[in-house]
Structures are given as structure tokens and as C-alpha cells.
């Protein structure tokens, strides 16, 4: 029982990062109906900025965090401007050029960082070394709990923001029907930029959280991005609550596979879970079928 409990808690803490990046996927999907496949790499950019400012320059971690989030936000906007904006107005269901352009941005970011910064892995110290004088609780370090707390906190915060504010209503209106929202006076371009910027901020925070857990390197975001995409789909892409549920589910499934199966099957288990959930519930756990007028 203790092993199960520990596996679930570890899985939830691992899932915190998936939640953040799945949220980023979902927010972008809401406004553009596209997936930004460079999202994992934007996380990598955030991690490197945090490493550069906190470790190399020695700035206080809150400053480094703000810079990481800001840098990732700018990267997110750049990805939009280079990968999606040039495509103009298009139907993402029929014109799938955006898949290639966002994937291209992903590769360019990885290779760019590899060339400029190098292939080395870098260790990033955590600001959260102990809590109440303890370095671990249930064999889990404070830095892991922080991932879960921040991930869930941001998901709930965004849910409230999008549910109860004018900005959230504008975003949802844009997601529901961009043309009509535009006619109602909503600046849909601003909404799209907002979604890419916010997704970048989330990835930057994810990079800050992930740096001390895995080493910072140019390819650190690829697998995280892929698993987070799975989490977004499992939870129901386009839904904040879905990203939360999907991210935590994937984290727990992965950890349970490690605990009760063979260690090397953990990643395969994530994709098996994806297939099973999509077979049973094609729109994801909390996803709703999209009904379009024809």
C-alpha cells in the first residue's frame, strides 16, 4: 500500500510539468485549432534562460524565473509569427502546413541551441532544498512537490481566469467561432497572440521547474513536449480541466508502470494509455465533441 501511495504521489509530482505544457497546448488549440509542436522546445528555452541568469549570472531565482518566463513568452510569440502567421487565414483541418512549420521551429530551436550553447547537460540547483527542515517527505523532495503545486495552481488559476473574466470570455468566444467573435468586436488576433504568449509563459515556468529535476540540455524538451501533448489529448485538448486531468493521469500511469511493471516500459505505458483512452473516449477524458454548423 505504501508503495502504491508513493508511486501515485511521485506520478502526480511528475505530472505537474505535463499539466503546464498540456495547458499550453490546449490554450493554443483553443484559439487556432492548431498544435504548437515547438512547445517542448520553448520549455527548453525557458530552462536555459533560467540556467543562464540564475547560475551563470548569479541573479536571485525569482528574477531568473521572471526572465525565463518572459524569454519563453517572446519565443512563443516568435514561433507564432514565423510558423503560423505567414500561413495567413487557413482552415487547420484542410491545410496542415502548420504541422510542418511548428515542427520546423521545434527542430530549429533544438539545433540552434545545440550549435550556439553546445551539447552539454547542465545542473541547475533548486531553490527548494528542504521544507520544515526535511529534505524529503515520503522519499519525495520538496522540488518535486513544487512542480505539482505550481502545475495544479496555474491550471486552476487559468480555469478561473478563463471562466470568470472578460478576457476569458473573449478567449472562449474566439475559440468557439473566430469570425463571429471578430464581428462582436473582439480582437481575435490579439487573442491568438495572447494564447501563444501565455503558452510561452507556462512553458517558461515549466522549464524553471524541470531544470532542477532533469539536467538542462538542448534536447530536454522533446520527450516532455510529446508526453505533454499526449496528456492534452488524453484530458481533452482545448480544455483547461482536461489538461490538468490528462497531465496528472499520464504522470501517474507512467509511474505505476515503473513501479509495477518493468522500468523500461514506462514510456510505452503512456502511449498505451493514450490509445486506450482514445478508443474508449475519442474526445479525451474531459473533452467535448466539437459540433460545427455546416
Amino acid at each position: 500500500m505504501a508503495r502504491l501511495l508513493q508511486s501515485v504521489i511521485t506520478g502526480l509530482t511528475n505530472g505537474g510539468v505535463y499539466v503546464l505544457i498540456a495547458l499550453a497546448f490546449s490554450i493554443i488549440y483553443m484559439t487556432t485549432r492548431t498544435i504548437n509542436f515547438a512547445q517542448g522546445e520553448i520549455l527548453m528555452v525557458g530552462s536555459f534562460i533560467y540556467f543562464g541568469t540564475a547560475v551563470t549570472l548569479g541573479l536571485p531565482w525569482p528574477v531568473a524565473l521572471i526572465m525565463a518566463a518572459a524569454g519563453a513568452m517572446v519565443t512563443g510569440l516568435v514561433v507564432y509569427l514565423l510558423a503560423l502567421a505567414p500561413l495567413g487565414k487557413f482552415d487547420p483541418n484542410t491545410n496542415i502546413g502548420w504541422i510542418l512549420t511548428t515542427l520546423a521551429m521545434s527542430l530549429m530551436l533544438v539545433e540552434g541551441f545545440r550549435i550556439v550553447v553546445g551539447e552539454d547537460q547542465h545542473r541547475v540547483p533548486t531553490p527548494f532544498r528542504s521544507v520544515f527542515g526535511r529534505t524529503t517527505i515520503l522519499d519525495i523532495e520538496p522540488k518535486q512537490y513544487v512542480v505539482l503545486i505550481v502545475g495544479v495552481g496555474l491550471a486552476l488559476g487559468l480555469e478561473i481566469l478563463h471562466d470568470r473574466t472578460q478576457l476569458g470570455r473573449a478567449l472562449r468566444a474566439t475559440a468557439h467561432d473566430k469570425a463571429t467573435a471578430s464581428l462582436l468586436g473582439i480582437n481575435t488576433t490579439a487573442m491568438v497572440l495572447y494564447s501563444f504568449g501565455l503558452a510561452g509563459v507556462l512553458a517558461g515556468i515549466g522549464g524553471w521547474l524541470l531544470g532542477p529535476l532533469i539536467f538542462v540540455s538542448s534536447n530536454m524538451g522533446t520527450l516532455i513536449g510529446l508526453k505533454s501533448f499526449v496528456a492534452a489529448v488524453v484530458g481533452g485538448i482545448g480544455s483547461t480541466r482536461g489538461a490538468l486531468v490528462g497531465g496528472l493521469t499520464i504522470g501517474v500511469v507512467e509511474q505505476l508502470a515503473r513501479a509495477y511493471g518493468a522500468g523500461e516500459w514506462a514510456e510505452a505505458a503512456v502511449f498505451v494509455a493514450l490509445i486506450l483512452i482514445l478508443v474508449l473516449r475519442p474526445t479525451g477524458i474531459l473533452g467535448e465533441a466539437l459540433i460545427e454548423k455546416v
Partner: peptide, 17 residues
Amino acid sequence: AEQYNVGDVDMSAQLTR
């Protein structure tokens, strides 16, 4: 004896066993 995939970060389950 336990195994992990190259690049794995979390090996806590294997080590717990």
C-alpha cells in the same frame, strides 16, 4: 536487477524495489 531507458530521469520505482 532493474532496467531503465537511456535518458530516463525517474528511477525511484526501480530503486525502491
